[in-house]
Amino acid sequence: MPADLTTDSPTATLALGRALGSACRGGELILLSGELGMGKTCLAKGIAAGLGLEPDTITSPTFTLLAVHRGRLPLYHIDLYRLEQPDEIAHLALFEEPLGPGVTLVEWPQQGGTQVPTDALTLQVSAGPTPNSRHWQWQLATDGPTHLQSALTSG
């Protein structure tokens, strides 16, 4: 089911992420796309906060491709920005959850093509009506983490 919402500031984006992170139970896949400088890492910090992690420790995984954080649930923060060959995902075992079921958050999922699983909450961020606002289009796969819907509609 698709829908959309708007956050009017980075603080509101953090709060959206925190609501999503708090609603996670383990095993969720969240795909996050949008242009450079749109606030993807900001949402990631919020999700991490909802998992009991300190937002300042969530840095961009662009360089390392995968960052594993030990929160209330493991957070697998993946960034496919530098990936050009989708089949490298298998070589790198990026979706293997070494600490057990957790929350897998993927930035630049389009770089992974068909190698990226689809049982996900997909979020697409774009510029909103004011400089600090962001427009979020979301879609929940029927076999995805449908329990996250309340976090997207209650705010």
Partner: peptide, 18 residues
């Protein structure tokens, strides 16, 4: 101290890309 989001080189690289 350390970065809380992007590394400086990453900011330069992504800026160039933009």
């Amino acid at each position: 101290g350390r970065t809380i989001d992007d590394a400086a080189g990453e900011a330069l690289d992504k800026g160039a890309k933009m």
